[in-house]
Simulated scan of single mutants.
Amino acid sequence: MSPDTGHPPPPGIRFAGIGDEAAPALGEQIRAHQELGWSAIELRNIDGTSLADLDDAAFDRAAAALREADLEVVCVDSRIANWARPITGDFALDLTELERLAPRCAALGTRYIRVMSYPDDPEGGLDEEEWGRRVRHRMKQLAERAEDAGVVLLHENCAGWAGSDAARARRLLEEVDSPALRLVFDTGNGLAYGYEAYDMLTGLLPWVEHVQIKDARREAGAAGEGGEIVYTLPGDGVCRVADCLRLVLDNGYTGFWSIEPHLFVRPHEGRADAAPDGVAQFVRYGRQLEALAAGLTAAAPAPTH
């Protein structure tokens, strides 16, 4: 139970957060989780540097700080196949990042690495069939190496060939056919990528091994047109966060719910610096997730519409 809240997570669930959404410095990331009373963290960047790019001394210092704080690392968010690496890009970047991250995951005590599934060529040079074929070929190679290294790649419903379509995600999983490829589901990505997250989740439940929490709404644009996406506290947007969480509970999910507020930090938009009160805002976000989770029961049926 987190201090000062009285809201324990549902049975089988633990809370965590993507640390650099609170602050660039690891010390502040740790402090945000300690203020929440949470014992786990998800890692992406430290001082603006991806975990794979830290030199050995910097990584060793980070691992020691996490051990001293008694914070468990639940997942490492890589750049493998992400929004900045199209399918026509250099595959060696991803192979090298996986090779570097695998032993670091072992040192941190986690087996999960977040990946995506490659955007199309920025010039639109590939048809859908060829794009998908190349994605599945690369992901199979990555999964084979991940399995050999004892880590699991978690594909996110975000950028890439399989990011916004449940049928494509299932095809990716079935054709790669590896225990080293599973899914992380982000509740808030649908609005930005043009799909209903809850509907997509219903088709992917057996493969979901990690859940990230964000929420959003779209401001009205000129003449009633769709406007800018605004990220909100969980439950204050239109992404049906509570419905998604109830759905995974009703289907036996146990594991982490990890916050990714996106209130200030959005790497895909080039926004990587937290606000001056980023830790306080991160804690506020976590408290609202705790309150939202307290209203959920695994026995309650999830809505079907």
Rank of each mutant, 00 (worst) to 15 (best):
R168G: 05
A197G: 14
R182N: 13
R111W: 03
T110W: 00
G132Y: 10
Y195A: 03
R133L: 10
E144R: 11
E174Y: 09
L108H: 03
Y198P: 00
D127V: 10
A167T: 05
N189E: 04
R170E: 15
L153Q: 02
W161V: 13
R171I: 08
G194V: 04
P119G: 06
L191A: 05
Y193H: 04
A180F: 06
R168W: 12
L154S: 07
M139Q: 14
R136P: 09
G109M: 08
W161K: 05
R171A: 13
E129F: 13
L172A: 09
A159P: 01
A167Q: 09
H137P: 11
V151G: 01
P122C: 10
D186F: 01
E147Q: 14
E156H: 06
Q141G: 10
R134A: 07
W131N: 09
E156G: 10
R111A: 03
Y198A: 07
D199M: 06
E174G: 13
M200G: 13
R182G: 10
R171W: 15
V184I: 10
F185N: 01
E147R: 08
G190L: 06
A167Y: 13
S117P: 01
A146G: 15
E130V: 12
Y195W: 08
D127M: 08
R133Q: 08
P122K: 11
M139T: 10
R182I: 02
G109Y: 06
E128M: 13
A180V: 12
L126F: 15
G188C: 07
C158Q: 04
E196Q: 13
E128F: 07
L153Y: 09
R136E: 06
R133I: 08
R138V: 05
Y193I: 00
L172Q: 10
V115P: 04
S164Y: 07
S117G: 08
T187W: 06
Y112C: 01
M139D: 11
W131C: 08
A146Y: 07
F185Q: 00
R114D: 00
R136G: 06
R114V: 04
D121Q: 09
V184N: 01
A197W: 02
A149Q: 11
G160S: 12
H137V: 09
E156N: 02
H137D: 15
R111E: 01
L153S: 05
